[in-house]
Each structure stands twice: as C-alpha cells, then as structure tokens.
Design a protein around this nucleic acid. Sequence first.
DNA 1: TTGATGCTTCGATGGCGATCGAACTGTTAA
DNA 2: TTAACAGTTCGATCGCCATCGAAGCATCAA
Lengths: 224, 224
Amino acid sequence: MEPNIAYIGNLIGDTARSKMLIALMSGKALTATELSLEADITPQTASSHLMQLIKGDLLVVRKQGRHKYFQLKNSQVAELIEQMLNISAALTSATIPTGPKNERLKNARICYDHLAGELGVNLLDALLDKGLLTENVIELNLTEKGQDFFTEIGVDFNTLNNHRRPICKACLDWSERRSHLAGSLGKWILNDAINRGWATQDLDSRALQFSAQGLSAFKKRYGM
Amino acid sequence: MEPNIAYIGNLIGDTARSKMLIALMSGKALTATELSLEADITPQTASSHLMQLIKGDLLVVRKQGRHKYFQLKNSQVAELIEQMLNISAALTSATIPTGPKNERLKNARICYDHLAGELGVNLLDALLDKGLLTENVIELNLTEKGQDFFTEIGVDFNTLNNHRRPICKACLDWSERRSHLAGSLGKWILNDAINRGWATQDLDSRALQFSAQGLSAFKKRYGM
DNA sequence: TTGATGCTTCGATGGCGATCGAACTGTTAA
DNA sequence: TTAACAGTTCGATCGCCATCGAAGCATCAA
C-alpha cells in the first residue's frame, strides 16, 4: 500500500494547525495555551488539534507539572514545513506586505534550529567567499580550511558527526529565495550566537533580535 | 505575511487529489479521465479537483485536441510529494502489504524523473563503490573518475549543468528507506535505460519493467 | 451532419470536522 | 482547604466541500 500522504496533508491543511506548526518552527517548545493563542482559537479546540498532530507523529509532547510542552517531532518534519513555506511563498509572492514585525522576520529569524533571513543568507555567502564551504548547486561541503576554522572557534566535529544529520545542508530561504546554512553546523552557529548573548529570540515569534555589539561581533567573526 | 501552508496542505490533504498527485509522480503527463480513474471518482469531480491543483500551482496542463494532459508543475513539487511519502511511510510502516503489484513497485519504479526502488538503491551503492560518486551523509558529489566515466558513456555535462537542478542529489527511497540517485544525472540514467529499450514503464503505474537482457545490460554497465 | 468522446458547469445532497460552551480532572500556590 | 490555572471531554451546531446526476460545450472521426 502506498503511504497515505493525504493524511499528512490534511493535518497541515487546517489553518489553526498550520499556525501552530509555523509557531513551532521557532524551535521552542510551546504550551497548549500559547499555541491556542497563536492559532486564535479556544483551548478546547487547540487541545483537539494537538491530539491529532501527536497522533500523526508531527509533534511530540513533554508533560511538566500542569503544563504540556509541544515540539516538532524531528528535523524531517521541520524540513517538510520549510519546503511547504517555500512553495506557498511562491504563490503569495505577488503581495509582500512589510510591517515592522515582518521586517524583523526578514532580517533574522530562527528556522527550527538554525539562522535564517537576510542575515542567514549573508552568512552563507561569506562562508563561501572565504573558502570555508564549497557549493555545488544545492549541496554544501566543508573544506579543509573550513574544518580548521570552525575547530579553532570551538566546534567539536566528533560530536557533530555522531548524528544522522548532515553537518552542512542548504536550506532555501522563503523570504530571500536563496540558500542559507542548515545542518548541525548551522545549529551550532545559532546556539553559539545566543550563548554569547549576541542575539535573543523574540518571545512571541521566530524573529531574532541582535544587539548592536552582538551583530558586529557576529559579522566580524564570520568575515561578513 | 507568512506564506499560507494550510492552503497547500489542504490541496494535498484530500484523498482523491493525493492519489492523482502520486500517479503523476510517474513523470508521465496524464489526461483528466486517466486521473479520475486513478482516484476512483467521476470525471466531473476530477475536473473540479484538477482546477484546484492548477490554481494552487501544483500542476500544469497542456491542451492537445480534446485531451488535457496534466503534469506536476516542477521538481520542487515532486520533492515535496516525495518527502510526504517518506514521512507517511514511517507512519504506516507497521503494515507493509506486498501484493504482486507492490512487489514490482518495490523492485523498480519511477520517482518523477529518475529511478527508485531496490534497483535504484543498488545503483547508487554501486556508483559509490566504484568511486564515481562520493557521499557525505546526505550530499552526493561527482568525482573526477565519475565525470570521466559518464562522459564516456555519453553524458554531456555542459547540458546538464545549464539547469538550475543539481546534477547529483540523494533522494530518500520510501520503500527501501535508503538513498537513491536523483538530480539531472539520475534523470539521464533513467532516460538512457528507457531509450535503449532495457526497461519500459507500466502503462498504469509508476512501476518499471526491465527485460531480462535489459536488466543484465544495465547491471553490467554500472558494475552492479 | 451525425454520433461519439473528453471535459466542464450547474445544482442538490450529504457527511465530516472545526468550533465553542459547559462541565470535569489535575496541578499549583497561598 | 480553597481558589486559580492548565488542559481535557462531551455534546450541539454549523459551514464547507467532495460527490455525482444532468445537461452543456468542444473536438474528432466518419
């Protein structure tokens, strides 16, 4: 029997559920109430939707006290959402409204666990320019020079290699329509920037807020 | 404004529409009537669904006389469907029914424009073994040796390079759960096999039928 | 011109599922 | 213990949309 893609499509195909999934693309684990606010529905309705998303293996849940924290199940699910964002961005591209909130999203945001938006695209450009990565149309590879560079600034490739995820992966950016860096290295770079206090995540969205010093430190580090 | 992924999800989320989309993963252009048969619905209903898929930019249509030929819009759409097949295959993996028809699908089938199934996975293994391609977790790259090999058997890399598509791309096989070769080189290999008469496509499905001689010629050529 | 075929439009029907109010369970804090 | 909060279950409602019959419009083959 063929896999049932209609089932998955239907899960994503509801407005409320899709809003929740997009909110979870921030990588943060959100509670049921938070998600109900994101989706503009009552907690009862949200509860029903969340059950379905769990059953459909798109989300996982962790219970903590009287809260339930929901997350995307894995990076495969995140990639699916990202791919759909891309395809549907092409549809609505005729109208690109730019409010202040959307502006921040465009500048820098989190795409599941790595950096996206204008800054993410520029980062990848800089890494390619400096010869730390090579690009083969859609595929990215770390050069020896890149391996040295990242080892020096603290990346432990033994740990990164252990996972099934690729180290480097190109992820098509839906706002920029160009690639940015995903994969475990992309995740490391984002974590590093947050740990150093260069950037903080917006409480209510995927937008990433760089401080003035943080931004210049980030740019200097990666030669942008 | 965020792109509307619910819209795309909803399009794929209907049983009839998803059957049509999967049928079109064969890469063939199918008529409205053929698609209505695939989806087990009347032509009227199919017509309505097809309009929606066109409007949603998932399909394109070519009119030829009194027939209308439908195709997936581009390889991005095909990749989306493939990813959904993978995710939903993980769900239904508990039950893997194997009829004779499914057996043929498992052996060799067409995935949009390249070879998939057991034979596709074995092909990639052989190419890696012979050092024609290198694999970096999920990324594939052509070696010099590979470039020479494929040039010799008739690949014109100037033509392949012109397109925006990557030459080599790993595509996760939903029946084998391992990678097979996609990208423009994957397309070339499939076309070549069909042009040489080694394989013919089933009229009513994505299954690929190799003749005995064709199969041995194919295996010999790629050192399998 | 006639009949057959491919596809579409229209209208009526029916069912599924999203939604929320009300009431319930479980957890935290005082 | 009590009150507030987080999340759920149940039931009723309501709207949307997939479906198909009937009729219509093109195209083809004589």
